[in-house]
Amino acid sequence: NITNLCPFDEVFNATRFASVYAWNRKRISNCVADYSVLYNFAPFFAFKCYGVSPTKLNDLCFTNVYADSFVIRGNEVSQIAPGQTGNIADYNYKLPDDFTGCVIAWNSNKLDSKVGGNYNYLYRLFRKSNLKPFERDISTEIYQAGNKPCNGVAGFNCYFPLRSYGFRPTYGVGHQPYRVVVLSFELLHAPATVCGPKKST
């Protein structure tokens, strides 16, 4: 009989979020998941679920829940969905086509923008091939755009693969920082350890 609540607040209220190319993952297990707390949290810009209804989450049990978190621009949030393409979905964070879970995003301009620009948040701009679902690539190898080998030196046709967002408070909404948490639900042939409040007695 599990009684402790799942530590969703640790994920959602973290002081610093990860850059999207180096997205953070927390495994959540052996706890009671009260999703209504999240669902009623006012400032969400997006709360979209795939393969599961957000209002039914509290009735369900899962083997594991993974909480992935990172920061992207407002106009990139739409790429955090199954079957998407674009710089983020291709080179930074890719969801599987059969994704079961929820994508939760909110504007973090007050936290993550600075006058003069916040350059701490990076994304991958160049990559030889697209990421596989949930693949994480933190390499900083110089990207070779031409035929000539770069030998690890940036220059003509040789690019550092990461780019900084440089968030400023005055940017338009599409270019403002958004914090994103992706909850993915794993249902294995194993005992369920993460259940909603109704199922955990």
Score class of each variant (00 low, 15 high):
S78L: 05
Y91F: 12
S184D: 03
G152A: 10
G117A: 09
G174C: 07
C61E: 13
F167N: 05
T85W: 04
Y123T: 06
N64I: 07
A190C: 08
D68E: 02
R127A: 06
P7H: 09
A22W: 04
A192T: 13
Y143A: 09
F8R: 00
C150M: 05
Q84M: 13
T15Q: 08
N24E: 15
N157G: 14
A192V: 13
V77L: 15
H189F: 08
T170K: 11
I104P: 00
D112H: 01
L95W: 00
P169K: 08
E141F: 07
V180C: 07
F17C: 03
T100L: 12
D34Y: 02
N130T: 13
N107C: 06
Q84R: 09
Q84K: 11
N87F: 13
G166I: 08
I104A: 05
W23L: 03
A46W: 14
G172E: 14
C150R: 05
D9S: 12
I2T: 13
S69E: 02
C61G: 07
C158R: 06
V77I: 12
N147T: 15
D59T: 12
D98N: 14
C6S: 06
N157S: 12
Q79A: 04
A145D: 11
S200T: 13
F185P: 00
A42G: 15
A42I: 08
Y93L: 03
T170N: 13
T170R: 10
H189E: 15
G101Q: 00
L188W: 13
N24T: 14
N109E: 10
A18C: 05
W106A: 01
K132I: 08
F126M: 14
G172Q: 14
N58Q: 12
Q79R: 03
I80G: 02
I80H: 01
S19M: 02
L60N: 07
F160K: 15
I2P: 10
W106H: 01
V115I: 13
T140W: 07
A42P: 06
R124H: 03
C61S: 11
G146R: 07
G174H: 13
F99Q: 00
T201N: 13
R168I: 09
Y178W: 09
F156K: 15
A81D: 04
A18F: 04
D137C: 02
V20Q: 03
Y143Q: 10
G116Q: 12
E76G: 01
N92Q: 02
W106F: 11
V77C: 03
N58Y: 06
L131T: 03
P197S: 15
S129N: 14
S36D: 13
Y93W: 01
F99V: 00
Q79C: 02
Q144M: 09
D9E: 14
V77P: 02
F126A: 15
K114P: 07
P177A: 08
D34Q: 04
R124G: 04
L125F: 12
F99W: 10
N13Y: 01
K94P: 01
G152T: 09
Y123N: 06
I138S: 12
S164K: 11
R27Y: 08
V65I: 14
I80P: 01
F47R: 01
V115G: 13
Y93N: 01
S29A: 11
V11H: 03
A67L: 13
Y165W: 03
N130H: 14
K128D: 11
G196C: 08
F12L: 08
N1H: 08
G166S: 12
Y66R: 05
V65F: 08
L38W: 05
